[in-house]
Design a protein around this nucleic acid. Structure first.
Length: 316
DNA sequence: AATCTCTCCAACCGCAGTGGT
DNA sequence: CACCACTGCGGTTGGAGAGAT
């Protein structure tokens, strides 16, 4: 028989992490750094398996993680990258270092998949082609970029500065945990959970100065609803992407090699994705579109994202 | 107010990959 | 080369909360 699951040992706790456990884990990692997960339960006395500790850290506690609602820009990135890379969430997350692969995966499964399906249904009523999925993702991501750009011009704020509405109220970073730790020292352990929740509230209020919550909601609703007119506009883009596809098929090599680094890295991922998936035509189309974005300046948004949202290193 | 249904997301599970011996 | 320990990744699940009835 195979080896038993790592967390099946007697005495290994399962289920949600308590604030106390988080504090222990974060304190240990702050002291010793992440890694050598095997030793973490032993040295901390946590009744968790090493794997669980690592996951808790990478998905929830490590610094630089952004929680809460995804901006339209991020949605566009995810849709676009999913079309390029498939369900390689870790690879997608590497372009959005503030988001974890788990977060992105969850968001895709709960929100974006539905949106795309909805969009695809709408597409099917307009098109006779049997396979519109690749085009659909392309169009949606394109529309998100457009909407993001428009809305950002209105607010003069990069998406990364936007309100983090909703989402978890529990500690989300070592900074928060440090504050949580202080509160925990002051209060009884039982009260720490509530304290942790309240600790995070001011953060939201700070951000609330940037954009009113109802504005965000309105933006999100704009993204949810795709009007007939928008659909027509997007369909007109489809012809452009088809041209790009043809162009990319006939011109697979890049003659001048003058693309910026962001696109270089994207291209390498695309190439890798091509190799792995063997699903070339839609990807080439999307890749071409990505590269075209550089020429038209939209790649700047990607760069902004990597500078603004992705300032935290992806490796810990 | 009580119950049911749905949605969301943190956490788990199992497999694959990697490096050391 | 084989084995083992460890880590990383993607799919899936279960519980909590929200909304509907």
């Amino acid at each position: 028989m195979g080896r038993p699951p790592c967390c099946d040992k007697v005495g290994i706790k399962k289920g949600p992490w308590t604030p106390e456990e988080d504090i222990i884990l974060v304190s240990y990692i702050q002291e010793h750094g992440p890694g050598n997960w095997r030793s973490v339960p032993t040295n901390t006395g946590l009744l968790r398996c090493s794997k669980s500790c690592r996951l808790r850290w990478t998905n929830y506690l490590r610094p630089g993680i952004k929680r809460g609602n995804f901006t339209p820009h991020e949605e566009g990135m995810i849709i676009h990258l999913q079309a390029l890379l498939g369900n390689r969430w870790a690879a997608i997350a590497s372009y959005l270092p503030q988001r974890t692969d788990n977060d992105i995966k969850n968001y895709w499964n709960t929100h974006l998949k539905k949106k795309i399906k909805k969009f695809q249904t709408a597409m099917d009523s307009h098109m006779t082609t049997s396979d519109t999925s690749a085009i659909t993702s392309n169009l949606i991501s394109k529309s998100y970029y457009t909407q993001t750009r428009n809305s950002e011009m209105g607010t003069n704020l990069p998406s990364s500065f936007r309100l983090n509405t909703g989402g978890s109220t529990y500690a989300s970073s070592t900074e928060n945990i440090s504050r949580l730790l202080e509160g925990w020292m002051r209060n009884s352990p039982k009260a720490s959970s509530k304290a942790a929740q309240e600790e995070n509230q001011p953060q939201s209020n700070e951000n609330a100065n940037a954009v009113a919550p109802n504005q965000i909601k309105a933006e999100q609703e704009n993204c949810d609803i795709i009007s007939h007119e928008e659909l027509e506009n997007l369909l007109s883009f489809e012809s452009l992407s088809s041209m790009a596809w043809e162009k990319s098929s006939s011109d697979s090599t890049q003659p001048d090699g003058s693309h910026n680094t962001a696109n270089d890295s994207l291209s390498s991922s695309v190439d890798e994705a091509k190799v792995r998936s063997g699903n070339q035509p839609p990807f080439s189309c999307l890749e071409m579109w990505l590269l075209d974005e550089a020429a038209t300046g939209q790649a700047e948004e990607l760069m902004d994202l990597s500078l603004d949202c992705c300032s935290a290193p992806a490796i810990f």
